[in-house]
Amino acid sequence: MLFTATQSLVFFGTISLTTILIRFLPFILFPENKETPQYITYLGRVLPYTIIGMLVIYCLKDISFTETPYGLPEAISIAAIIVLHLWKSNTFLSIGAGTVIYMLLVQFIF
């Protein structure tokens, strides 16, 4: 351990409390018993549709198109997921097959 036990507690405690604060902040600012401003309600409706795309890009953020394998395993697996999901609409099949394809690609081909 690089830190003493007390230092570790303070260190991880800070991260824990800061995370909790961020997660609770919207609910503290806009409590149930007060009417939420229309603009915030609008954001609440529209943001979920924007964030999932952001999460997809977040997962793919470390891909490099200038170095091997040029993001090919990800591109092939995601294409497979899209085709499978539009065709069969089966969540488990799409996620399971996509993951297996990706694992095979990175372990045996790229």
């Binding site: 999932i52 793919l60 995601i78 997921i81 899209i82 996620i95 990706y102 694992m103 690609l105 990175v106």
Partner: peptide, 17 residues
Amino acid sequence: TMGIDFVLTALFVVIFI
């Protein structure tokens, strides 16, 4: 298990679709 963490990317892609 190399590459198995892609399951979360796959989950997000499916939710996106």
